[in-house]
């Protein structure tokens, strides 16, 4: 049965990305869009593809400090993503709340509610850091397949 591990190795070359904005200020979202869209940091060479539907996703990029208002929607969305999945928290907000950390409207750190596999700190993180985070997530994903 040597074929299955081979196929799993091949499968990890096709990570599809899905973005969840958990109350982010859009700074990280712009960086995420930039990493994918501009030629210089093309992530399609890793086989990545942004998908519109959470059901198609493999790697979830979450930005923002998880505000109280969006919590239910984010958790519901997260459940829609089929296993095996890997979560990447982009920006400092999901880790600590960043500049919003004292706010009454914010539930950060986000890993109280959602299992986070990779943290990419920064406000906003550099595109290279996000790509490194995605590459790390692919490694973790390989073990879960």
């Amino acid at each position: 049965m040597g074929l299955i591990p081979d196929f799993k190795k091949i499968a990890t070359r096709s990570p599809w990305l899905y973005r969840i904005n958990a109350g982010s200020c859009n700074g990280c979202d712009v960086e995420m869009a930039t990493t994918a869209l501009i030629p210089r940091y093309d992530v399609e060479r890793l086989g990545c593809q942004y998908c519109g539907s959470p059901k198609h996703a493999d790697i979830v990029l979450i930005s923002g400090p998880l505000t109280v208002r969006v919590k239910d929607a984010v958790l519901r969305m997260f459940d829609e993503i089929p296993e095996p999945k890997v979560t990447v928290a982009v920006g400092v907000c999901p880790i600590s709340g960043g500049i919003f950390r004292e706010s009454y409207a914010v539930l950060a750190p986000i890993d109280q509610y959602i299992p986070i596999d990779v943290n990419v700190p920064g406000c906003p993180p550099r595109p290279q850091a996000i790509i490194a985070g995605v590459a790390k997530a692919i490694e973790i994903w390989r073990e879960r397949l």
Partner: peptide, 23 residues
């Protein structure tokens, strides 16, 4: 003027989808 995915990318995608769960 991007690098672009490997030529075999659609094959990888199909194999990957085989490992995912249907909901």
């Amino acid at each position: 003027s991007r690098v672009g995915p490997p030529l075999m990318q659609p094959f990888f995608d199909i194999i990957k989808l085989g490992f995912k769960r249907t909901m």
